[in-house]
Design a binder for these strands. Sequence first.
DNA 1: GGTTAGCACTCACACGGAACGAGTGCTAAC
DNA 2: GTTAGCACTCGTTCCGTGTGAGTGCTAACC
Lengths: 344, 344
Amino acid sequence: MAGELDPRKKQVLQAVIDDYIESAEPVGSRTLARHHDLGVSPATIRNEMADLEMLGYLEHLHTSSGRVPSSKGYRLYVNGLMQPKPLTDAEKAQIDKWYRERVRRVEEVFQETARIIAKVTKNVSLVLAPQMTQAKFHCLQFLPLDDRRVITVLMTDAGFIENKILKMPDGSTFEDFQRMAQVINKNLAGHTLGTIKQNSLSEIKDEIGDDMLYESALEIIHRALDSGKRERLYLGGTTELLEQPEFHDVEKVKETLLMLEEEELMKDILHAHMGDGLEVTIGQENPDKHLQDASIITATYHLDGELLGTIAVLGPTRMEYAKAMSLLEFMNTNLTNVIKRLPW
Amino acid sequence: MAGELDPRKKQVLQAVIDDYIESAEPVGSRTLARHHDLGVSPATIRNEMADLEMLGYLEHLHTSSGRVPSSKGYRLYVNGLMQPKPLTDAEKAQIDKWYRERVRRVEEVFQETARIIAKVTKNVSLVLAPQMTQAKFHCLQFLPLDDRRVITVLMTDAGFIENKILKMPDGSTFEDFQRMAQVINKNLAGHTLGTIKQNSLSEIKDEIGDDMLYESALEIIHRALDSGKRERLYLGGTTELLEQPEFHDVEKVKETLLMLEEEELMKDILHAHMGDGLEVTIGQENPDKHLQDASIITATYHLDGELLGTIAVLGPTRMEYAKAMSLLEFMNTNLTNVIKRLPW
DNA sequence: GGTTAGCACTCACACGGAACGAGTGCTAAC
DNA sequence: GTTAGCACTCGTTCCGTGTGAGTGCTAACC
């Protein structure tokens, strides 16, 4: 609002935040002068810091004892002050190795992605597996289990597979089901799961003829689609949390873990952040009160140009933003490749 | 060794352990006299406690400040002193409700079982899903994904389903695969997965004829079996841990969570305890040094009379043994029913 | 002889003041 | 505008003391 900060103020702010991110301790003028070569004395730094506090970039816990960045301070830092910290080649190689060693099937990609993000950033990670509404229907097959039940297998073009056991309605035979599968596949192939649910499926009705069978076909398609579309949330790094000094208090750990366990809540939070590309939300910028002293970095990814999901890092506001952002960016673009090359 | 304890000593020991399990505080003679109606004065109790300590049933942290049960003390308690604590009808109803609300498919039963055990006992729970080596092969089906890949679906009689995407060898067609499936199903139906792997499968070789196709059939069967047989471990209640006073120290929490994350280690521990029925291992009785101050109660369950897996409660030696044992016993017998009635 | 009251003794723990140190804000000199 | 100096604040650590729960021993009691 009051115009730009002069260069030295920016430099001081950056130094304060860098220091605080590393040490987790409120930073004072003398320490700052020692750690960073700013070319001025602690007294001058004190004056600058007082100004920065007045402008709302820094905060004071109580008189005496150093400053801590405010959300506004972090915001400025993220938007321009910080040094980008790209992944090293060694890190990229390590990530690739992890994927190759630990992932055998498509579904495991997301769990492993969560694990990797947590390991690298030392923070909690969240991975929302793609919403299947945009996935293309490939085919639906029935396999006989016994005389009362069939197994329904639903596949999408991208190779996601869902199966479900269903009871056969009284009076129907497995042959009925196979006939149904043919009709369904002929009519639905290539449609996205999202549109299928909305359409009336009336062609199928005509082709099947038998009303009762049509009803169960509908039921089956819907149940198969429901299980296929279910969004899954993968969590990583809940133990990394304990490494962070802000969680030396067991109460805080408990509170946070309980929040993370509330799957629906976490999904909602991720949905709220689903946008294009990388998004950083810092402390009080976050509408959710559980996250007021946390920051969350989200990245929305695309598979096949359609399917979309979100990967995120959740941590204390004191977070290595530069590192986390580079990582998410990398994981984001890398994800498609990892999935494409499965199975080997 | 030195014969039986006299009845009053037993009574005192039981009282000490009951008290300690409830309070988590070393228990002294006065408190004991206050909380339990033993009909004698604290001084007498002191004498008895001194004897019990001499005999190795109680321990002294340092002079002054009450006694704590030793592993030997807990052992006696579990073997005969404690009051059985059967589940109430309300608890059973709650468990049933949880299963009905939250489980839609066979694979989810185990995760939910772990969750329930953790919730009820307020401790960490472990559920080892059944080893599939004893499962009976029902059928193997192939479904076309695209011109290079097929989806392999493996089913067991009990309704466990595994799928896997496989690349087709060059030159083979989907029709070859379907032919292969017929041969495989005819020959393997009803065999257990464990025996299939060992047998030479030579009948299949003869029937398939083509050597190259036979090789890939072998490969496929093995890969399908491998994924089907993979044991899965489900963990529950890692947050319940934090409720226990022995985990008010973050270091201890970290250590424990890291141990629990080591899936192979935990599986080995459960395997070591796999026996018949309920087994309680207390503190130092445990060979694994990570568990020297923990107790683990395991119960081996059977499905279809063949498949077996293990459910367990892991907690501090100060644990509500009676409650946990009743619960495991119940879950154990209940599990078959829960699976049998799926899907609704 | 088992049981109990009394008493001296031990220790963990909580409380409170002193010393310390990191940090601030202000003023005056450069 | 920058910096040195200084008084002041306040969290943290360190000790000494007091308190309370508990023990073990001895001597008296039933």
